[in-house]
Amino acid sequence: MLRIRLHGRGGHGMKTASRVLGRALFLEGYQVQDAPRYGAERRGAPIFAYVRADRKPILERGVIREPDLVVVADDSLVQVPAAGVRLGLDAHAVLLIDSHEAASVWQERLALAGPVFTTDSSAVLGRAAPATDSGTPGTNPETAVGEDPYLASSHAVGAAAALLGAIPRATLEAALRTELSELGRSRTARALAAALAGYDTFQDRAGTVEPRRVWTPGELSPPDWISLPFETADVSAPTIHGGATSVKVRTGLWRTLRPVIDHEACHRCHWMCAFPCPDGAMFVDSEGYPQIDLDHCKGCMICVAQCPFHVIEAIPERAASALGDDSPAPARKPS
């Protein structure tokens, strides 16, 4: 059985990515199971999806703990504990991660014994040819990935399909067209170009991902079961003692787009932009300027839509991070 786990953020299209791989393997005659797993669904929140494929009906279900391939479409997820990227990355599992960093860097950072490949989709897609024989429109080198986060996942899906060695190029294309049929022709064409670029890059690695040997009952280590201790309701009631604990969760890591206020052009009508923030991630400084708490702003862009003077700009998070401007409350430039 092939076991693939895919990590991304809500809006990256990781559920769709799992369905593209699932569909492609299904078209190749495999029995398939694909499924997303998420909590309260929100754009930018960590999600994962998984695919199982086998030549016989699949009985196994649920979270894949022992993957053959782990695909990560956003390297900022690695440090998010709730994302669970590291689970099961042993000497057998292949890690495919979309990152500017080299594979060896991730191997060292995560102490991985298994193979690691990086896709660096923004660089690859930025270099994509203006038009291909499949009628693909040109991609803008500056914004290709940032504006359409699902292109990174499309690219990763293509790379993953190649690494599996079980999916011919034409099958990948057919699967992608089926699963993206609701997106419209131009987005589908861009996703397809991204996926095929990923596929072509890794075609010479076909078959790198292999199924694990079937376990035998004797080799499993017994579970570390415990008997739960009784604890009074002071401890065991599901209570958060105090209101501000959510501050400790840096939801700013979920952001794919960052709102940036041009304070020189800002009219300080803060009631227009800061109060509608659904996460209370905006505040007003002593001089009446709206400010953004980047540790907790999830990048919903409501403030961008709200600003009557259009002085809040949305820029891709990756580009913003590259500027090194990560302070929670950026210095304001009063006019």
């Binding site: 579970p223 570390d224 079961w225 415990i226 008997s227 739960l228 009074t232 002071d234 401890v235 209570t239 958060i240 003692h241 105090g242 604990t245 400790k248």
Partner: peptide
């Protein structure tokens, strides 16, 4: 038996710490 492991309890203790649960009785 409830299927529950030592590792799960460790993880729960982390959540309780974030939720400011006082373990002293």
């Amino acid at each position: 038996r409830l299927l529950y492991t030592e590792g799960e309890l460790r993880e729960l203790r982390k959540l309780q710490a974030i939720a400011a649960v006082q373990h002293e009785q």
